[in-house]
Amino acid sequence: MINFIRKRIQTGILTEKIETNNKLDNIKKGIKTLVNKKFAGSLAIRMVDSGSCNACEAECNALSNPYYNLESLGIYFVASPRHADILLVSGVLTSNMYHHLLEAKEQVPSLKWIITLGDCPLMQSVFEKTYAIMAPVQDHIEVTHHIPGCPPQPDEIIKELLKFLKKI
C-alpha cells in the first residue's frame, strides 16, 4: 500500500500535467459550461457498435483514461439506452444489427440525439456495400451530428462533442 501511495504522489494528476494543450483545455471548458447549461451537469451517452472493427470502441474507452478524463466534464458512457441522452453509433450497420439498433433507439427517452462515430456509419470508410451492410445509417434513422475519422482520435471526439453541444 505504501508503494502505491508513493507512486500515486510521484505520478500526480496527469489530466492537467500532460494536456497543457491550451486549445483542448478551452474546448473542455466549453463542453463543461454547455453540459451544465443544457443537460443540468450530466450528459449520458450510450454507445452501440453496429458493425465496427472495434477501433472506434477502443478510442471511446480511451476517453476515460487519465489523460482525457471525459467524466470530469460531466459526460458519462452509460450501461443502458434507457439512461442515455445520446445514442452514439459506430460501424457499418450490419443487417444482423439493424433491428437491435432500432430497438436501442426506441429505448432512449425523448429528447434523444443520434451521433454517428467514425467513417463507417456514413459509408465513407474503405468498406464497400455488401448484402450484409445497411449503412448509411442516416437512411434509417435521423442523425444529429457526425464525428468523422477512421477511427476518430479521443481529442477529435472531444472537439466534435463541443460542436454538437453548440448545435443543439
Binding site: G51, T94, N96, M97, H100, T130, Y131, A132, I133
Partner: peptide, 11 residues
C-alpha cells in the same frame, strides 16, 4: 455471434 458480419469475404 456474427452480429458484426459485414460480408468481408464477398466484399
Amino acid at each position: 455471434h456474427f452480429y458484426t458480419h459485414r460480408g468481408i469475404e464477398k466484399m
